[in-house]
């Protein structure tokens, strides 16, 4: 019985399989409406994340399955001090698969070692969030038709953004990938990722503080939020935040087929004027998130 705890648990072939399956679901939704008849997904959210939970629940309902669970620790037995192990052992009696979000890093791994059903990590603190990475991968593949030969720009908070770290790690396994890192000096990509991931895979990368300079080279632009609380003082924040807000002016020299992504929720880092631009893919990402979760649920449940 398999679980998905870390995106690195999946081989390139398994990711390809999931992409193929998600594309088939998108093209032939009728084929899957009863795929999970009589099966139940438990969403155990020890910390709230409405977005991720709704995506999992919508995925299971579209497969004909049912959903049970809780959306915050206060309403669960964890509030009474029950261990993760005991909670999942109990829930394993009711559900066929579990999607779990937890504020503590490694909690889903603990769960997967104790549960008798597959566990999907729906985010463990600032650590892993593999279904977000799968969502990003499906979006890249649907927009570009390939994972090889791409120049990907990551813009904003590259220091704390776990979605950025995981996607860099996932993309570094493909051929001829170039990475462009665009951030204020304060929020640069941590050096261990440059060393252990980019250099280890011989990935060509550029580091810059200026988005417009590198814009023409990008096939994909992955935007993230620059959060106020990451800065030591308000002045720095005010000075820097606008440099990392995407506006139509900054897109003047961008490629015609640029794909603009964002893990959402956005605050103001992408101007709403861009929403109607055909290159804006962030709302498509939301939809892709549901489809890739459907593919993942099918795979882990062993349903064809």
């Amino acid at each position: 019985m398999r679980s998905l705890i870390d995106i690195k648990d999946l081989s390139i072939e398994e990711i390809d399989e999931l992409i193929v399956k998600a594309n088939d679901i998108i093209e032939n939704p009728k084929k899957y409406v009863h795929a999970c008849d009589g099966l139940k997904l438990a969403t155990l959210f020890f910390e709230p994340s409405t977005r991720t939970r709704l995506s999992f629940e919508a995925a299971m309902y579209e497969l004909g399955g049912n959903v049970l669970g809780f959306s915050e620790a206060q309403s669960s037995s964890a509030a009474k001090g029950e261990s993760v192990s005991d909670t999942v052992k109990t829930v394993s009696c009711y559900a066929d698969i579990i999607a779990m979000r937890h504020p503590k890093e490694g909690a889903p791994l603990v769960a997967s070692r104790k549960a008798s059903v597959p566990i999907i990590n729906a985010g463990d603190g600032g650590h892993n969030h593999p279904t977000q990475t799968l969502t990003d991968l499906l979006t890249i593949h649907r927009e570009k038709g390939r994972f090889n030969n791409l120049t990907i720009g990551f813009c904003g908070d590259l220091k704390f953004g776990r979605t950025v770290h995981s996607l860099i790690e996932a993309m570094s396994r493909y051929q001829n990938i170039k990475v462009v890192l665009i951030s204020p000096v304060e929020l640069k990509l941590p050096s261990y990722i440059k060393h252990d991931v980019l250099r280890a895979h011989n990935i060509e990368y550029v580091q810059t503080t200026n988005l417009e300079d590198v814009m023409p080279t990008l096939d994909i632009l992955y935007m993230t939020r620059v959060q106020r609380e990451r800065f030591f003082n308000e002045d720095d924040y005010v000075r820097l935040k606008d440099s990392y807000i995407l506006t139509p002016e900054k897109l003047v020299n961008a490629k015609e087929d640029l794909c603009i992504m964002h893990p959402l929720p956005r605050v103001n880092e992408i101007s709403t004027e861009i929403d109607s631009d055909s290159r804006a893919c962030y709302f498509k990402q939301v939809l892709n998130g549901k489809f890739i979760r459907m593919a993942l649920i099918l795979k882990l449940l062993g349903v064809e």
Binding site: P103, K104, E105, G106, A107, V110, D124, G126
Partner: peptide
């Protein structure tokens, strides 16, 4: 020693 690690709250692990 990571205070965000699950081992920090679940002593029996």
């Amino acid at each position: 020693k990571n205070p965000r690690c699950i081992t920090s709250t679940e002593q029996e692990l």
